[in-house]
Computed example of a mutant assay.
Amino acid sequence: MSDRMPLARQVRSAVEDCPPREVPRRLCEVLSGGLPVDAVTMSLLTDTPSRQLLCASNEMATAIEEVQFTMAEGPCITAASEGEPVHLTDWAAGSRRWPLFAPALRERCPDIEAVHAFPLWLGDYVLGALDMACRTPGGMPQAAIEQAIEASHAVAQALIPAQRLLSAEDPAPPWEPADAVRAHWSDTHRAIGVVMHRRKISSETALALMRARAFATGRNLREITTDILNS
């Protein structure tokens, strides 16, 4: 694939004749290779309790997703809810905007210098969001940001088959990394159901209690979910 091919075209080309289950991984690979970034994640329903992680390109990407999922705040959640790109390049300002997320991510991944998030618009609906992290101070240059914005529209179109898989019978779509995807989908929702039943509360309140427990104990939501399901 030519390096001169526009990134949006690379996205469209990469998923031609691609099985729906392989689409998120293929997209992460294209974005990681086409932009000056060190980690890429993508998720659907990003700013809702039904958030679904689709792909994390590496351990750094998984860490970003886990911190945002646990804290219920961060750049990709804001990008999805506001429908605009969000850029975390100033950590003092980031800590004021996301007082739980920014310090937690800084502690877990001190080499991350910037996080860029882009909403995935499909018509007048936001499907989810992309997160991209950089070790370079200041993050992506403006030209790369413009490429990412253009590519995000192609990504949204490419993810339609993955969105349809969410309503399929398989409770844990086989996306990567498998353990994190399962934690962000079937396991968490099973744990929410357990807490709802035990406490006779709504799903939103159950998830809030799980997140509060994670924050209070310094653990992530995946670990709290495991505790609940094993108890």
Rank of each mutant, 00 (worst) to 15 (best):
S186P: 03
V40D: 05
T48A: 03
Y125G: 03
T41I: 15
L45I: 07
A172W: 11
A191T: 00
W175Y: 14
M5D: 12
R182W: 07
T89V: 06
T205G: 06
E113I: 06
Q157R: 07
R198F: 05
R106E: 10
I201H: 01
D170F: 09
A61V: 02
P103R: 01
G83L: 02
E84S: 13
R199Y: 03
C134S: 14
E150G: 11
R106D: 00
Q10N: 10
D3M: 05
Y125T: 11
L54G: 04
V37E: 03
R97T: 11
M42G: 04
L31R: 01
V15R: 00
A117E: 01
E82S: 14
A154Y: 06
V115H: 04
M1S: 13
V23R: 02
W121H: 15
V115G: 02
R97K: 15
P174I: 09
A143H: 01
V15Q: 02
R9C: 12
R213E: 15
E73T: 13
F69R: 07
L44R: 07
M42R: 01
E73I: 09
R96G: 06
R4Y: 12
S231Y: 09
A129I: 01
P141I: 01
E223I: 05
R164F: 13
Q163R: 08
E66K: 05
G128H: 02
T70A: 06
S13M: 13
F118A: 05
G193K: 12
Y125P: 03
R26H: 01
L88D: 06
L35C: 08
M5W: 12
E82L: 15
V15K: 08
E22V: 04
Y125L: 12
C76L: 13
D3T: 14
Q68T: 07
A212T: 14
G83S: 07
V40A: 09
